[in-house]
Simulated scan of single mutants.
Amino acid sequence: MSVSKIAIIIGSTRPSRISPSIAQWLQTNLQTADLAVDLIDLAKVDLPLLDEAAMPSDGNYTLPHTKKWHDLITGYQGYVLLFPQYNWGYPAPLKNALDCLYSEWRHKPVSMVSYGGHGGFQAALALSLVLRGLKMRWLTNNLEITLKPDELDDNGQFKDAEQALAPYKFDVRQLSAEFTHLLH
């Protein structure tokens, strides 16, 4: 059996974000012998705001950064979108990254992992409409991670990420199994 590749796309670019530690924890807990999991950090990808002349649905990419983004994304069979809830929405860099491409997303399995003081339900709800528009295969396992103030330090980072995220471990195993079932 071959190994399937999925990517966790870190949707926040805010300097004080907690998402890299969540992403690393997810990667460790999602990865199996049949499932390779990479991290894509939108802060490092640094996509400009929709600067291609043609619509992404045309697939006529002319700018080097869009071609590079296309090449990166097409190397994966599925995605986990990791993002915080900002004022009941999701971060603009994530929307931009999705909107820069079109057919590359079609029919690919996707899971959402939102987080925030209340888990990010509203942000996940808003993003689900975009994923439907892109015709992605929305998985049944999606996580809403509630950040508890007593588990965070003065800089808003986990005191102990493993302990804080432990309640979500079963859900991540279920997500891993769902990806493995769909991709094999």
Rank of each mutant, 00 (worst) to 15 (best):
A161S: 13
K44E: 13
T28H: 11
T13W: 04
G89R: 02
S4R: 10
A92E: 08
L143M: 14
D38K: 04
V113W: 00
L47P: 08
D160R: 06
S2I: 15
S16C: 10
I18V: 15
L39P: 12
A161Y: 06
T74K: 13
S128Q: 15
G78R: 04
I145D: 05
T62D: 06
A43I: 07
V130W: 04
L134Q: 11
E151G: 02
Q27I: 00
Q163A: 07
E162A: 15
T13R: 02
Q85M: 08
H118M: 11
L42A: 03
N96P: 05
G117C: 02
N29C: 08
E104N: 07
P64Q: 11
N141K: 15
T66D: 07
K44C: 07
K5N: 14
A164R: 00
Q24R: 09
K67L: 14
K95R: 14
L165D: 03
E162M: 10
Q27N: 06
H70F: 08
S176N: 06
D71T: 14
G11M: 07
Y61M: 10
Q31L: 01
H184L: 09
D99A: 03
L35H: 03
L81H: 01
T146Y: 05
I22R: 00
L49M: 11
Q122E: 14
R14K: 08
M112Y: 07
L49H: 12
W138N: 12
G78I: 05
L183R: 03
Q24M: 01
R173G: 09
V3F: 13
E144C: 12
S111I: 03
A124Y: 01
T28V: 11
V45G: 11
Y102N: 14
A54K: 10
A177M: 10
S12K: 03
L42Q: 04
I73A: 09
L63W: 00
T140S: 15
P84W: 03
A124Q: 10
P20G: 09
P93N: 00
A23K: 02
L98Q: 07
Y115C: 03
P56V: 07
A166K: 14
A177L: 05
N141P: 15
Y102G: 04
E162R: 08
Y102V: 07
Y76D: 05
V130L: 13
A123G: 04
P48N: 11
A36R: 05
